[in-house]
Design a protein around this nucleic acid. Sequence first.
DNA 1: CGGTTATATTTGCTCAAGCAGTCGTTGGGC
DNA 2: GCCCAACGACTGCTTGAGCAAATATAACCG
Lengths: 191, 191
Amino acid sequence: MSKYNRNNIPRVKHWYDEQVTNVFDDPRITAVGLLFEAHAGLSARFTAQLEEHGLSAVEFEVITRLARSPGNQLRMTDLAAQTSLSTSGVTRVVDRMERDGLLTRRACPTDRRSSYAVVTAAGMQRLNETLPGHLQMIEQWFTGQLDPEALTALLDGLRRVRDAAHPCATAGSDDADPEQTPDVDGAARRQ
Amino acid sequence: MSKYNRNNIPRVKHWYDEQVTNVFDDPRITAVGLLFEAHAGLSARFTAQLEEHGLSAVEFEVITRLARSPGNQLRMTDLAAQTSLSTSGVTRVVDRMERDGLLTRRACPTDRRSSYAVVTAAGMQRLNETLPGHLQMIEQWFTGQLDPEALTALLDGLRRVRDAAHPCATAGSDDADPEQTPDVDGAARRQ
DNA sequence: CGGTTATATTTGCTCAAGCAGTCGTTGGGC
DNA sequence: GCCCAACGACTGCTTGAGCAAATATAACCG
């Protein structure tokens, strides 16, 4: 439904000019709507599947971030920086997940202000139970909906938008991690 | 690291060797991450701008939906169906906006169970003050980040994902969506 | 050292949102 | 006309999240 470029005549003005029939139906708003609804749709699908495994979306994000980090652990602050949560939000999620046995707190040996959130064995097991279904959902509702070129184009576009708009929440995620790896198998030992 | 190569003896390859570092960096998860982070980034930018005009993202969505509806009004239930809110959520957001003078409730003449939420003059004025800046934000952080073809490709991909995954409104109502014009932003995490 | 500032986490408070239940209203079947 | 299921809006309750203050520790600087 190429609502936006209904004709291919090169134009001086913007791509949306002719379609503005009503201020509130502006195609720019529609574009945002597409992105937001795609997000909402996927979010709902994922939430439903995660719930079957007793995880909320936030908990899944937390445990995934931890599980991909060295030692299956992160300091609370770093965890907050990598997720959509504030530090107090992280405190409370970790509270709940600790109560449920999925995580443990561990004191940082070099800085007594800090503490690590560590995935327990039970947490890793839960994650391993959940992940295959989750990946299946992603394929079913997202990546599998598009052929490879379309998917690549979509991801390229998203990456640009993300890089432009994202308020540096993933600051420390992909870069080299100068932090020394503290004791990989501690998770099993502590509990 | 030390766990796996604590001594230099060549090890037998275990089933998990390639997974311990990779499973959680699966490109499918990365793809979802891009979409979600793009959404989060835009959402944060929009929220900041709307806040300057005294509107939350939800309030903006509500007032926009109403403003594009005939008579600048909708029944509460219909408003709920068009937004990311449940009916009780709509009740409360309309409460607040009515208190702030942006909306009014009006009794439905034909069905005394129903009531309409109507945008007041003050509400329309607020929206008109807010909208240009909002559109500017969309261009700045979203549509303006991409050249026309890339934008078209992005929107095409999003539309497919949206059509596949969007649970036809959110809470409760699961009808097909005959409406041609998609939506405005909303739902922050919301999830 | 002693004092000041910065950092890490937790806690109190507030608020927005959903669910489930309530109340009044509607409309169909008889 | 009467009954009852369906519907629309609202309310009580709970939950999850953020902000700001509190607490503890670290780092720095004289």
